[in-house]
Design a binder for these strands. Structure first.
Lengths: 204, 204
DNA sequence: TTACGAACCGACCAATGTGTCGGTCATCCT
DNA sequence: AGGATGACCGACACATTGGTCGGTTCGTAA
């Protein structure tokens, strides 16, 4: 049983460092040697656990990246009432951690989607899956918000969800240069304005 | 005088093909050899005109990319009245061309910013310069819209501009997978909703 | 027409890329 | 205890990278 533990530990170490470095430098600009050097591991060890760089990356996406996005953007809103305020707070908090992270390189998921857009369909599928989870979650909470009387019945949940995701991905890209704080404030003010539009305000 | 013409022609050919391929495959995933092969030009020719890959890329950004962004996103709105409708139409048209382009890889400027974020400061400066032009243009036309009575006096022009840019960059990234048409429609509907918020509606 | 230099060629280089493979050692099952 | 095997090592193979350099071609000015 000791064996399996070690295996898991090593793989996880590789994945964690991989996510970190791919995020910092991009997939194509990060070599396996770079990662291995930081981990003091060998080529042989790497190719024992993973069959290729691409498969390695996909495993990182499906395991680490998925959980990261889920815990940051999905979990905090799922099941909650008052969708619009909940979503706004969740996004604001997410931007705050990005802002406090003094070396921020953007929205991981967004960066990778950008890098792989139009190529490497296997990787894109893994990335899009994560995006889909977020989107579905947004749509469903908005729909529920309608029946619960928090959201205007005329609101187009799917369009709103797409708009939220789009703007979030964009602002995370732009926040990178150090002008994070200012941007976050401006962005959130407009997002909240936008949200006010579809608050339920017909009746009583 | 023939000499100079040929020089310009060759350089432009290199830059144009470079923009095309960097856009399709990303900067780090496109080698100079790749580009040269497509152009049937030699290494020597390349390094006669450009001193390095990076300098080459910067020249592409400053000359071709700048004009492209300017003609598509800045020129159509500068000096116009009724900023909100003008901007919305401009963005919609821009999304339309992206949608019709059956092989679209996202917003060129956005992709590159993403790829270089946090590294290669020289390149980032060139990219940010373009973004700045767009932003300044948006802010100034919005401000003018206020004095002309098209935009609510309470609107925060800078925040609006940031919000527009953010959401546009994001939606262009997401439009890539073929689901362009649907997304464009959803995005534009929400953007126009958002714009209605700050239409001038206090007084007569 | 001749000499010169701009424009371009393509072989070459060192560094780096991913991926392979035979071997080593600790751990586990019997 | 001991053979099998899981986990890992590191030298190697081979393609590709950005970049160099001596040479060739050819328009052009004297």
């Amino acid at each position: 049983m000791e064996r399996n533990l070690k295996r898991m530990a090593t793989m996880h170490r590789m994945q964690a460092k991989g996510l970190e470095m791919f995020y910092q430098n991009g997939y194509f600009n990060t070599s396996i040697d770079d990662i291995l050097k930081e981990l003091s591991l060998s080529k042989g060890g790497f190719y024992y656990h993973f069959s290729s760089k691409e498969e390695y990356f996909i495993s990182i996406v499906q395991q680490l990246l998925f959980r990261k996005v889920y815990s940051q953007l999905v979990a905090p809103i799922v099941g909650k009432e008052d969708p619009l305020h909940t979503i706004a707070d969740c996004i604001d908090k997410s931007l705050e951690t990005a802002e406090l992270n003094f070396l921020d390189y953007g929205f991981e998921l967004g960066n990778f989607i950008n890098e792989f857009n139009g190529k490497h369909p296997e990787v894109m599928n893994a990335l899009n899956d994560i995006l889909k989870v977020w989107e579905v979650c947004l749509v469903s909470i908005l729909q529920k918000g309608k029946t619960d009387g928090f959201v205007s019945r005329h609101a187009d949940s799917e369009a709103i969800a797409s708009f939220i995701i789009s703007s979030y991905m964009g602002v995370r890209t732009l926040m990178v240069d150090g002008k994070a704080k200012n941007l976050r404030y401006k962005y959130m003010s407009q997002l909240r304005h936008y949200f006010k539009l579809m608050e339920h305000n017909e009746r009583v």
